[in-house]
Design a protein around this nucleic acid. Structure first.
Lengths: 344, 344
DNA sequence: CCCAGTCTTTACATCGATGTAAAAGACAGC
DNA sequence: GCTGTCTTTTACATCGATGTAAAGACTGGG
């Protein structure tokens, strides 16, 4: 910057003033400075600026697995929303490990970021304890605590609605693909809410909650969904619908079902979550819980930037509306299916 | 840091020495310092460190559209590879706009990054001119210039091989879904190579290159692929195979074909590129050009980090091997199809 | 033509970590 | 006990941008 100043015949501070617009600079001076900046191909050093005024213009985005379609869609939306606000995004992966999640949050300050958006699998309380020492955090997805800002869809109610929908279309034995009561299912963030909604839906219809119809899926990917479905089929359990906790899981399940000879939706109904691009283009277009991913990201960034301006704000929670999109995959009534009578 | 030093009864430099390990520190002193750091919950400020030693530990990753399955997979792989090397990743989207690509590269220095991995759609020469003033760049994908480091698969040869495969399975009229000679097709990076390979494959088999079988697809997403396929079908052109330039395009095309009543692979064969997770789980599992995404990312990071250490290295290009994975979608021979005789 | 009041520009200190060079301390050997 | 070597610690300057406060350049009114 000194070089620019020298070339333009002014002091470094004047160059800085031109850049930040914080003080008035006379037209001819400004032009001279701009000319010099162009000639020297000058770019301000953000490390220095960050050091000086304590903000880097970078926010962090942490998700379990970037390959999952929903994460990819959310990353896109967050990058767009951040771009519109003059911020850039650093991505992190927690690989669904609570330890990495914990690590990431507590070490957030080291990472040059002004704030962070986290899609938690499970956020330990100990992390939230440290909140005062950490940069602003917005959680996306459901977590049972009210001390940070959050953006969420009402997963519990959505899952209940999905179950009602499946039951209305004739399903009676619905597989929950993504979480189980007997495991750590209810403990985990989004997973817990969807499982609760599933159970509530069954209870309302006075259908029993069968443990053999509840399957944990450690990785919420297509392969993970297929593996979960295979587990059910190999046990020979009979069922007539699947509530998958994400669209990726649903797509994997549908593939596995077809490869066992199941017909969709004639034998089994399937419903997913998130409405990723893929869902509507699947072999059997997938019924799913849809919501506006961009609105979700915008809300998260609004909460984050407002808190970056004022750390003293009370914790806020913003709910994004969802909608059940009925597609071909739940055109019932289903005949029912089990691994036993399959051709493979 | 001063506070830590004071609490441990040493000078700030000693604390720094403990952190960096650059100088010897006696055991008891080090323990005292570490104790003090823990007590004060101290985390070093990376902005300051970055300012001091000119490196931030952040690399940039720029791709056209993060929603595309291949981009998501690559982002995952790059984040993992970077993590293993103690780096973090900042993501950018170029939205397939050459202007944004140009902007990003020339302004790269402002973004606190030590280097950058770019999946270019079209990289203008003017950018490469500025290379000396820019941080290290590794291009992923094919670009017709040899002044930067690059990682690539031989797309031209892969496309030719795919065409040979389709012809061997009985195809004669192959749609190129992703690029066209008559447009700007040959100018663009990866797209150009795949188009050239397609044309080479046809020429070898002495089949004519028909302009009506070549379709540009501006967005390499599922929806983009479906739109491109629809265009062909609406024109009533007859064809018996589709070479889609990415798996996402292929999946969109397959969906569109099915909705016009086309049977896969009985009427039309389909081949994609990239082997994303989805390809093998599609209704009709997709034949595709597969390669190891993680190896690809590792190679890119190796090139990048070595250049970060020594800017003077000559430009290097590393080719990653690919393999044509034949799945159900190219079980020929195909009967042929056109929009005219469709039920819709 | 001078002066108060306003608009521009300048000098300097600062953010936090770390390289350099020199001072202080530890230790062995005579 | 003293010197010389080696290790550990210190003081200071520096990376680049910017806030503060003060100096300098201008305007218009008298």
């Amino acid at each position: 910057m000194r070089d620019v100043a020298e070339r333009a015949g002014v002091s470094p501070k004047t160059v800085s003033n031109v850049l930040t617009g914080s003080a008035q600079v006379r037209e001819p001076t400004r032009l001279r400075v701009e000319q010099a900046m162009r000639e020297l191909d000058f770019v301000p050093n953000l490390s220095a600026r960050g050091l000086r005024n304590g903000r880097s213009g970078v926010i962090g985005l942490a998700q379990p697995d970037l390959r999952a379609a929903f994460s990819a869609s959310m990353t896109h939306a967050v990058v767009e929303a951040a771009h519109a606000r003059g911020l850039v995004v650093q991505v992190e992966e927690t690989a669904a490990e609570p330890a990495r999640e914990h690590d990431l949050v507590t070490r957030a300050r080291t990472h040059l970021i002004d704030g962070m958006i986290l899609n938690p699998v499970r956020l330990q309380d100990s992390v939230v304890e440290h909140l005062d020492h950490l940069p602003p955090i917005v959680l996306i997805g459901e977590v049972e605590q009210h001390r940070t800002d959050r953006v969420f869809i009402n997963s519990r109610s959505a899952a209940r609605e999905a179950v009602q929908h499946l039951i209305a279309r004739g399903a009676r034995r619905i597989v929950a693909l993504g979480g189980a009561e007997h495991g750590a299912g209810l403990d985990k963030a989004t997973q817990g809410q969807r499982l609760r909604g599933y159970l509530a839906g069954l209870a309302e219809a006075q259908l029993p909650a069968r443990p053999e119809l509840q399957v944990e899926v450690p990785e919420w990917t297509i392969a993970g969904g297929a593996a979960g479905m295979r587990e059910v089929l190999e046990r020979g359990v009979e069922f007539d619908a699947v509530l998958a906790f994400t669209d990726s899981i649903a797509l994997g399940a549908m593939h596995e079902l077809r490869s066992w000879g199941g017909r969709l939706p004639e034998d089994v109904l399937v419903c997913g979550f998130d409405d990723v691009e893929h869902a509507s283009f699947a072999g059997t277009p997938l019924t799913t819980i849809a919501f506006d991913h961009q609105a979700y990201a915008n809300a998260a960034l609004d909460l984050l930037t407002s808190r970056m301006r004022d750390r003293g704000l009370p914790p806020r929670a913003q709910e994004i509306p969802y909608e059940l999109l009925a597609r071909a995959s739940t055109q019932g009534p289903p005949a029912g299916f089990s691994g036993k009578n399959s051709p493979i």
